[in-house]
Design a protein around this nucleic acid. Structure first.
Lengths: 173, 173
DNA sequence: GTCTATAAAGCGATAGAC
DNA sequence: GTCTATCGCTTTATAGAC
């Protein structure tokens, strides 16, 4: 259910994902949708952001913070990210919301997502003996690579960008 | 006229910029808007993208390609970019369009923008004796930094990101 | 050229039968 | 819980007076 909503928002944006479109994708009528989400579309988006937040917390931030081998945790992050964003064929919903109109409405969830990502990565970098300032650079690099990959319709741009970041770490730069 | 349209699309997105909102910002009624742009909103966006393309060609791409001092041209690009994006307080309209729904409709203009930027920067990097592969990395880094700065409502993130890119060049990395 | 009025369609949201 | 029907509003776009 939530994944279907997430995919609809990802592909059409918050405004572009009309209730009728959401109904088609989920196979539910408006009555059912408002039964599960009395708050309407805004509540659907909140639910999506909450689930997304939980997923990243479990699969990315927690391992980065607590993984015994920090270097391995960072390498695992790059693999997880490549898989999550379908090697550049999928965009970041939070990034899309951040750039667009819905930013103000979901400002807290958006800010939390990026703050936690940067902090978790910085923590792992520190423990791995690398420059923690790279965290912002990598998170921004990932977001930018998603923009570029989608703009040029070339998913390889994303995969290559991830590879270059890992190479920078290996070089000790 | 076009700058007013551009700012409205930047702040509200393609779908969020309704004709009534555009009318408010430009001070024109719908009759006047359709007089100048018979194709409606799509034609307004096309005009904005065309003007934007011309601006970047003149102020960024051309200097990067033909500037006698390639290193100085790259430094000038960073200054121009910082000014254009209001030190992180303004987002990139093309990046926003690329991530969102209007991507397919304006695919050509979007792809051209990023392709030319990467090519121009790669050309300057090559002539400056740097790694031309950094071009994609920097363009993506700029886009990602704009996402992050807006997500966290912290323009300094953008300025700092630009500074780190320049530092990487100076270090010969 | 710029305005008002209006058409036709789609939007989010609600009500109520089942 | 799920559906259909509907409300009120906004949207893009057009028509026509001035």
């Amino acid at each position: 259910m939530i994944p279907l909503l997430a995919e609809t928002f990802r592909e059409h944006g918050y405004e572009g994902a009309s209730l009728s479109l959401i109904g088609q994708r989920t196979g539910l009528g408006k009555g059912s949708l408002y039964h599960f989400f009395p708050g309407g579309k805004a509540e659907m988006a909140e639910a999506v952001l909450a689930e997304l937040d939980a997923w990243f917390e479990t699969n990315l931030f927690h391992p980065l913070h607590t993984g015994p081998d920090a270097e391995a945790a960072i390498a695992a992050m790059f693999r997880t990210i490549d898989s999550y964003f379908r090697s550049g064929r999928r965009i970041c919903l939070v990034g899309l919301f951040a750039l667009g109109e819905p930013r103000d409405r979901f400002a807290k969830a958006i800010a939390t997502y990026f703050t936690r990502w940067c902090q978790a990565l910085a923590s792992a970098l520190r423990r791995a003996g690398k420059d923690p300032a790279l965290a912002e650079e990598f998170v921004a690099g990932i977001q930018g690579a998603l923009v570029l990959a989608r703009a040029l319709d070339d998913p390889d741009l994303f995969t290559n960008a991830l590879a270059r970041m890992e190479a920078r770490l290996a070089d000790g730069r």
